Measured scan of single mutants.
Amino acid sequence: HSLRVHINGKDFEVHNADEHVIRALEELIRRGADADELKEFLERWKG
């Protein structure tokens, strides 16, 4: 899957995101994670 996440006016393109990554991202958003947390998660995932 390809996923586009809009954080703090920046678009993050997440390519080849598997279900696990997408679910983790949705969980963060549901918990009310702020932009920094989401960005950190995506950067860690992209490795």
Score class of each variant (00 low, 15 high):
4 R>S: 15
6 H>L: 05
29 I>K: 02
13 E>Y: 10
39 K>R: 12
4 R>H: 15
27 E>V: 07
9 G>Q: 01
24 A>T: 07
41 F>E: 06
38 L>D: 00
40 E>G: 10
11 D>I: 15
15 H>F: 06
3 L>E: 15
34 D>G: 11
46 K>T: 14
40 E>D: 13
10 K>Q: 13
26 E>C: 12
32 G>M: 06
20 H>Q: 11
26 E>P: 01
16 N>E: 05
18 D>V: 04
24 A>D: 09
43 E>D: 12
46 K>Q: 14
4 R>F: 04
26 E>D: 07
36 D>P: 06
22 I>W: 03
1 H>C: 15
36 D>L: 08
19 E>I: 14
34 D>E: 13
6 H>D: 03
3 L>D: 15
4 R>I: 15
30 R>G: 11
25 L>H: 01
40 E>A: 12
33 A>W: 09
8 N>A: 07
22 I>M: 05
28 L>S: 02
34 D>V: 06
37 E>H: 07
11 D>R: 06
25 L>S: 00
5 V>Y: 02
17 A>W: 03
33 A>R: 04
21 V>M: 12
15 H>W: 05
45 W>C: 09
33 A>M: 07
1 H>M: 03
28 L>M: 13
21 V>Q: 06
45 W>D: 11
32 G>S: 05
8 N>S: 03
8 N>E: 05
16 N>M: 07
26 E>T: 11
1 H>N: 15
18 D>M: 05
38 L>V: 09
47 G>P: 12
6 H>C: 05
43 E>P: 03
23 R>Y: 05
35 A>R: 04
25 L>N: 00
23 R>F: 06
17 A>I: 11
39 K>G: 12
22 I>V: 09
40 E>R: 11
45 W>M: 13
37 E>Q: 11
26 E>M: 13
26 E>Q: 12
24 A>R: 09
1 H>W: 00
21 V>H: 03
40 E>I: 10
9 G>M: 01
35 A>D: 08
35 A>V: 15
11 D>P: 05
33 A>H: 06
22 I>E: 03
25 L>D: 00
10 K>W: 05
40 E>T: 10
41 F>H: 06
41 F>L: 07
11 D>E: 13
6 H>V: 13
10 K>R: 10
32 G>C: 04
11 D>C: 14
8 N>R: 04
18 D>T: 12
44 R>E: 10
42 L>F: 07
9 G>S: 01
38 L>Y: 03
23 R>P: 02
34 D>W: 05
39 K>I: 14
23 R>I: 09
26 E>W: 10
26 E>N: 09
2 S>H: 15
36 D>V: 08
35 A>F: 14
33 A>D: 02
6 H>F: 02
44 R>C: 09
10 K>Y: 07
24 A>V: 08
46 K>I: 14
37 E>R: 08
40 E>H: 10
5 V>G: 01
43 E>F: 03
45 W>A: 09
22 I>K: 04
23 R>D: 05
6 H>G: 02
44 R>A: 12
43 E>T: 06
21 V>R: 02
39 K>T: 14
2 S>I: 15
47 G>C: 10
10 K>C: 03
19 E>A: 11
15 H>P: 05
2 S>G: 15
16 N>F: 10
44 R>Y: 10
20 H>T: 12
32 G>W: 03
42 L>K: 01
35 A>G: 09
41 F>G: 01
39 K>P: 01
3 L>K: 14
42 L>Q: 02
35 A>L: 11
17 A>Y: 03
29 I>D: 02
19 E>W: 06
47 G>V: 12
31 R>Q: 13
15 H>N: 10
38 L>P: 00
3 L>M: 15
34 D>I: 05
24 A>M: 12
30 R>V: 11
34 D>T: 12
11 D>S: 11
8 N>C: 04
4 R>C: 15
42 L>N: 02
11 D>G: 04
23 R>S: 07
12 F>T: 01
9 G>V: 01
27 E>G: 09
28 L>A: 06
2 S>C: 12
38 L>Q: 01
39 K>D: 08
33 A>K: 06
2 S>D: 15
11 D>A: 07
31 R>L: 13
19 E>H: 11
43 E>G: 08
7 I>C: 02
18 D>F: 04
4 R>A: 15
34 D>S: 11
16 N>I: 06
46 K>H: 14
18 D>R: 03
21 V>P: 01
12 F>P: 00
40 E>S: 11
19 E>D: 09
25 L>C: 03
27 E>C: 09
26 E>V: 13
7 I>P: 00
42 L>G: 01
4 R>L: 10
12 F>C: 02
22 I>S: 02
41 F>A: 10
11 D>K: 06
47 G>S: 13
29 I>P: 00
2 S>Y: 11
31 R>M: 11
3 L>P: 13
21 V>S: 04
33 A>E: 03
32 G>N: 08
6 H>Y: 02
19 E>M: 10
5 V>E: 01
39 K>V: 14
29 I>C: 04
15 H>R: 08
37 E>Y: 08
6 H>S: 14
10 K>T: 09
35 A>P: 09
7 I>R: 01
12 F>H: 02
29 I>W: 06
43 E>L: 09
29 I>F: 08
35 A>E: 09
20 H>D: 11
13 E>I: 13
21 V>A: 05
33 A>Y: 11
27 E>I: 07
15 H>I: 11
30 R>L: 12
34 D>N: 12
5 V>H: 01
4 R>E: 15
45 W>S: 10
16 N>S: 09
23 R>M: 10
36 D>H: 09
36 D>I: 08
28 L>Y: 04
4 R>M: 07
26 E>H: 06
22 I>H: 02
42 L>D: 01
46 K>R: 12
18 D>H: 08
14 V>M: 04
18 D>G: 08
15 H>L: 08
9 G>I: 00
13 E>F: 10
38 L>N: 00
25 L>P: 00
38 L>H: 01
46 K>P: 14
25 L>K: 00
10 K>M: 09
41 F>I: 07
17 A>L: 08
38 L>A: 03
23 R>T: 08
31 R>C: 06
36 D>N: 09
7 I>L: 07
15 H>C: 04
1 H>L: 03
38 L>G: 00
36 D>A: 08
24 A>L: 10
14 V>N: 00
13 E>M: 05
16 N>G: 11
2 S>R: 15
6 H>N: 13
30 R>M: 13
32 G>D: 06
18 D>N: 12
41 F>Y: 13
42 L>E: 03
14 V>C: 02
27 E>H: 10
9 G>E: 01
19 E>K: 12
47 G>N: 13
29 I>S: 03
45 W>K: 07
3 L>A: 13
3 L>S: 13
5 V>P: 00
21 V>W: 03
